[in-house]
């Protein structure tokens, strides 16, 4: 009888120990993940979207110029979202530093409001994956040309649901009224943007960079179409700053490489 009790005691003790170990193991793994997440939430990536017909390599020269000027080299991760939501990653997949640069491009990079809506959805898919992968909870946004429109659509419809905070947003020559010269003649897209502008994050800091070759165009986008941006952001977001760049290299496609613009990007984001 005594022997039975002794055996029973050992069984209970070892059962208790095994359960203790399993619980501890669970906690240790969870704790490690939480620590890593907390660590990475310090990361504040700058996520850039190129304009129509541009690929994921659109900002290579911008990042090169940025890195040339700074001591800390920014990691560059490039994503292309295919039409079936599949995403390819190129560049440095192991992001370090406080402000890595992530470029999100789309296989379908065509112009037009319907495409912009699709691209905004692909942007959401890509951001979702990025957040799961890199555990950041805030980022800064930069959109060149149509990229700015895609971001605006995303900010008005999907940003809050995703649980990330966009702090700073810069557009470069984004045609908010597409290719319309007149401001009174609103496109459906601009009308929608204005309609849903109350959904924009109140703490957003917006900078609008417009190029100008003459008084009416930057070579592609009408100055008035870019200026229509103010009807979307002004008085809704925390602040809205307009910068007009003229002189050499102020043509629409040159904007991301323009020295003044690079300087401005550096000061705004890094």
């Amino acid at each position: 009888m005594k022997q039975v009790f002794k055996n029973l005691r050992w069984i209970i003790v070892s059962l208790f120990l095994i359960i203790l170990l399993l619980i501890s193991h669970n906690w240790a793994v969870k704790n490690k993940q939480e620590l890593e997440q907390q660590h990475f939430s310090k990361m504040d990536p700058v996520i850039m979207i190129p304009g129509s017909n541009a690929t994921q390599n659109r900002f290579d020269s911008l990042v090169m110029l940025l890195n040339k000027n700074s001591i800390h080299k920014h990691d560059l991760l490039k994503l292309t979202v295919q039409t079936n939501n599949k995403i390819t990653y190129t560049g440095s997949t192991n992001l370090t530093g406080k402000h890595p640069v992530i470029v999100i491009a789309f296989t379908n990079n065509k112009d037009g409001y319907s495409n912009i809506k699709k691209q905004a959805e692909w942007l959401r898919v890509a951001l979702e994956q990025l957040i799961i992968r890199y555990h950041f909870n805030h980022f800064d946004a930069l959109g060149h040309s149509n990229g700015g429109l895609i971001y605006t659509y995303f900010l008005e419809h999907d940003a809050t649901r995703l649980g990330v905070r966009v702090q700073k947003f810069m557009t470069m020559g984004s045609p908010f009224n597409l290719n319309k010269q007149s401001i009174t003649d609103q496109t459906q897209m601009l009308a929608d943007f204005i309609k849903y502008r109350e959904n924009l994050p109140k703490q957003l800091e917006v900078t609008s960079v417009t190029g100008a070759q003459n008084y009416s165009t930057d070579g592609l986008v009408p100055v008035n179409s870019a200026a229509a941006e103010k009807y979307v952001f002004q008085e809704v977001v925390k602040n809205y700053t307009v910068v007009t760049v003229t002189g050499s290299n102020a043509e629409h496609s040159d904007l991301p490489q323009n020295p003044q613009v690079v300087n401005l990007v550096q000061k705004t984001f890094f």
């Binding site: 203790l20 193991h25 240790a28």
Partner: peptide, 22 residues
């Protein structure tokens, strides 16, 4: 490497501190 909560039994410190390395 990982920090361990106070009052962890001594024989579990290394287990928790390595993220559960058996």
């Amino acid at each position: 490497v990982y920090p361990v909560p106070t009052g962890t039994p001594v024989f579990l410190q290394v287990f928790l501190g390595t993220g559960g390395n058996w």
